[in-house]
């Protein structure tokens, strides 16, 4: 291995093709392949190990909610806090069953989810486009980023009166508000990531004759895939936030409406139910994006 064997010592071609030593043999003769390098491969952890670890983590994550539930149950069972302030877990459950049976729960959840997804989709697509423009082009950045920054600085709820005045109290104004909320996280992460794509890789692409468009599709976009996903994740959280804001202010359906309605009727049990539902829905959609993120990180980094 340390010494180059002369050709006479090189192994005879195994294919029997009669040709002089093939390139492969040529290379391995000098110890570049198999023996010399295979030991250097960094092995990824075995699948089973990872699975086992994950199961443990899920259980650990469920411990605190279970404890909270028990504490909640005890507090209300012992009458430490009056029922009209803190409903018992079972009354919240009953409220859920009642809602589920007459079908209103499904309607509220469906309409809210639909608003979130529409607003999230519209906002992220626009955020992606603006982020790409600002992140890739010096001119685009100089021209657009101060203005976008100013819009971003406006507290998003400040748009509500204007949206209501312009669009009215309907689906469009709610979806628009959610889109505004989802736009900025995507815009910021994408623009930042594209601006900071490893200049070495960009130069490499140039040196190998990639044009602007090829550079974008083959180097820059793949390089920012992980950032895009984390931007999307933030945007989704924002979308839920803005959903409730939009529904609290003016709506006749949805989880935000349910909050106001329950408050007005003094139904603390329904209030609790809605808050718990928002937590579960938000966490579920976040977990779905998390799965996507995990897959993409494995694929693209």
């Amino acid at each position: 291995m340390t010494e180059k064997p002369s050709l006479a010592e090189a192994p005879a071609p195994d294919s029997g093709a009669g040709a002089p030593a093939s390139l492969h043999q040529y290379a391995s003769t000098y110890g570049y392949s198999a023996a010399g390098t295979e030991g250097n491969l960094v092995r990824e952890p075995v699948r089973g190990e990872r699975r086992g670890g994950q199961g443990w983590i899920i259980v650990a994550g469920l411990v605190l909610p279970a404890l909270l539930l028990v504490a909640w149950f005890l507090i209300s069972a012992l009458g430490l806090v009056p029922e009209y302030r803190l409903p018992a877990p079972q009354s919240v459950w009953l409220a859920a069953v009642e809602f589920a049976e007459n079908g209103t729960l499904a309607t509220h959840i469906a309409i809210s989810t639909q608003r979130v997804l529409l607003g999230f989709a519209a906002g992220s697509i626009l955020g992606l486009a603006l982020g790409a423009l600002v992140g890739l082009s010096k001119w685009g950045s100089a021209f657009l980023s101060p203005t976008i920054g100013a819009f971003r600085a406006v507290p998003s709820l400040a748009w509500v009166p204007l949206l209501v005045l312009y669009i009215g109290i309907n689906e469009d104004s709610k979806v628009t508000l959610i889109a505004i909320g989802a736009l900025f996280p995507v815009y910021t992460t994408v623009a930042g990531a594209l601006r900071h794509v490893d200049p070495h890789l960009v130069e490499l692409g140039r040196a190998y004759g990639l044009g602007r468009l090829q550079l974008l599709t083959q180097v820059q976009l793949p390089a920012v895939v992980p950032s895009i996903v984390s931007g999307l994740r933030l945007a989704l959280a924002q979308a839920w936030l803005f959903l409730v804001a939009a529904e609290l202010i003016a709506s006749s359906m949805g989880l935000g409406f349910l909050l106001v309605d329950s408050q007005n009727n003094g139904r603390v049990d329904r209030l609790f139910l809605t808050i718990i539902l928002l937590g579960i829905l938000g966490k579920t959609t976040d977990a779905l994006i998390g799965l996507l993120e995990k897959y993409l990180l494995k694929r693209w980094s």
Partner: peptide
């Protein structure tokens, strides 16, 4: 395929850069 064999990476063509050593990456 020929080139990877020439530089002694015929067995590693499917690996990602982070899975190989610095020498292999340079090859």
């Amino acid at each position: 395929r020929e080139l990877l064999r020439l530089v002694g990476l015929g067995h590693a063509s499917g690996l990602r850069p982070r899975q190989v050593s610095g020498g292999m990456a340079q090859r």
